[in-house]
């Protein structure tokens, strides 16, 4: 998909070693991955296989021991701390299992936060936040506080916060982990819709039924990508004999 376009995220032969000598853990061992605009990629693997390490490295929260990471064509290794922090704020949105909304802020304020941290004026930030909530179909939650929302609603606000402004890359670590199956599916539909509108996303999940919303599923084992699955081209759906 979009193989000719520029990857929003590109990992090239990424290794990450935690600890040293006796306690050394090779969390990633030569992972390469490219994610294009409009693509939703799911990452599956047993616990300890390096999924979270992959996401934190992709988002510039952690650095590879060797290999390169590019976000929107910029090599994170070539940026200083401040540059990486800026790229994180402007290009990358994170979604976590436990939503991580600021309890004292409303949904709109939470969604506006990344822009305000980036120096955008309050009014403009609020406008963008309301636009993000609106695009996700949850504008009615704008003035609610996290404790006035269900888990599924909080996670949708967290997705709004992840895509607010012009951010093109969403990284989600078990975004449905704390939700029941039905609510998790609604969150996935929303993420899918965002990707169909051009966002690139990488999502870690244990649940095959949620991974199935992705364009590609990457299987990690012991820090290595062992396989990928992607759906057949649409023609194959109409032509069973192709299988």
């Amino acid at each position: 998909m979009n193989a000719a376009g520029t990857a929003v995220l590109r990992l090239d032969d990424v290794h990450r070693v935690h600890g040293q000598a006796a306690t050394e853990v090779q969390a990633l061992r030569g992972v390469s991955l490219a994610v294009y605009p409009g693509e939703l990629v799911a990452v599956m693997g047993p616990s300890g296989s390096g999924k979270s390490t992959l996401l934190t490295i992709a988002g510039g929260l952690d650095s590879p021991t060797s290999g390169t990471v590019c976000v929107e064509g910029r090599d994170l290794g070539g940026l200083d701390r401040a540059g990486r922090a800026r790229l994180r704020r402007t290009s990358v949105g994170y979604v976590f299992q436990d939503f991580n909304l600021v309890p004292a802020l409303t949904a709109a304020e939470n969604a506006a936060l990344p822009l305000e941290l980036d120096g955008v004026r309050a009014r403009a930030a609020r406008g963008a936040a309301l636009a993000a909530l609106g695009e996700l179909g949850i504008e009615e939650l704008a003035d609610r506080f996290p404790d006035q929302m269900s888990g599924g609603q909080q996670q949708r606000v967290a997705i709004a916060r992840a895509v607010v402004g012009e951010r093109r890359l969403v990284l989600a670590d078990e975004p449905t982990g704390a939700l029941d199956s039905e609510t998790g599916e609604e969150v996935l539909r929303m993420l899918r819709a965002r990707c169909d509108a051009g966002t690139a996303a990488v999502m870690v999940t244990h649940e095959a039924r949620h991974a199935a919303w992705a364009d590609r599923v990457v299987f990690l084992r012991d820090g290595v990508v062992v396989d990928e699955s992607s759906p057949l081209p649409p023609t194959a759906l109409l032509e069973p004999s192709l299988r």
Binding site: A208, A211, W213, A214, V217, F219, D227, S229, P231
Partner: peptide, 10 residues
């Protein structure tokens, strides 16, 4: 697993 995942995606 990969083949079954492909079917699940479809």
């Amino acid at each position: 697993r990969s083949a079954t995942m492909t079917a699940l995606q479809e």
